[in-house]
């Protein structure tokens, strides 16, 4: 019988980190699903880049994959805070339910829902009934001017375009490297992780990159414009590539 695990919790509590510790294991087939954000999911892309042996499942393929699972398979469902915990889909699968929660949160819908509670990051639980919005966009093919990207990330996470509690992104730099950037409001600093991918040194990368911003009152158009203004032109990019 395949094993199903659903993981939920507030934004930034450490769901992906918790799942990642199991994905290192290559002895049995593992599947990763992050429903709700369609094709543009930072988590999906990052898991795919970090653990090439894990099968990341986009929503469109979900049905087909579930219908044909090997017996020893484990399937992880990352159940975002914006998804309904009472979903009949989850109930129908007979999942093990894990909530990754801030240590000082003692009472919540997650507590009643979960079979098991795991202590995660000390993020602020969302204010009652006031769920943040999620804005995401693919950036595939965009390569960033490094100092501009630094300014942009500081501004977005600093609240220049609305209050941001979470930012995840995969960004391409002109040295051909791709970085995963992770910001959680309340946690110190921003986390930059270089993705273990071959450097892309000719033309624009065709592998996935993108950004996902979670927060309140997001000025989406202004963020999009700043992203656009920070991307390198073809001419600037080929100049960089000549240097490396």
């Amino acid at each position: 019988m395949p094993h199903f695990i659903a993981i939920s919790g507030p934004s930034g509590s450490g769901k992906t980190t918790w799942i990642s510790q199991f994905l290192k294991d290559q002895s049995t087939p593992q599947f990763y699903v992050c429903p709700g954000l369609g094709e543009i999911s930072m988590d999906l892309a990052r898991i795919g880049y970090r653990f090439p042996w894990v099968q990341v499942v986009a929503e469109a393929q979900l049905r087909a994959v579930l219908a044909d699972l090997p017996d020893q398979a484990t399937v992880y469902f990352e159940w975002g805070f914006h998804l309904d915990l009472g979903s009949p889909f989850l109930a129908g699968l007979g999942c093990e339910r894990v909530a990754v929660l801030p240590p000082d949160l003692t009472e919540s819908d997650w507590h009643t829902w979960a079979d098991r509670v795991v202590a995660g990051n000390a993020v602020a639980a969302p204010a009652n009934g006031h769920l943040p919005e999620v804005w995401c966009t693919p950036l595939t093919g965009q390569v960033f001017d490094p100092p501009s990207l630094e300014v942009l990330l500081l501004e977005v996470t600093g609240g220049a375009y609305g209050q941001v509690c979470r930012l995840k992104g995969i960004f391409e730099l002109p040295n051909g490297r791709a970085f995963y950037v992770d910001f959680v409001e309340g946690l110190p600093g921003m986390e930059y992780t270089e993705l273990n991918l071959p450097p892309w040194l000719a033309g624009r990368p065709s592998r996935f990159s993108g950004i996902e911003v979670t927060g309140w009152g997001l000025e989406q158009q202004a963020i999009a414009q700043t992203l656009l203004d920070s991307g390198l032109s073809d001419a600037a990019l080929s100049q960089y590539h000549q240097h490396f």
Partner: peptide, 22 residues
């Protein structure tokens, strides 16, 4: 641009461009 006001209120420095010897 409103971002000018946001930066002014913080006395914010711009990130430095890495020197390009070429």
């Amino acid at each position: 641009p409103p971002i000018f006001a946001w930066r002014l209120a913080r006395g914010m420095e711009f990130a430095e461009r890495a020197d390009d010897p070429g």
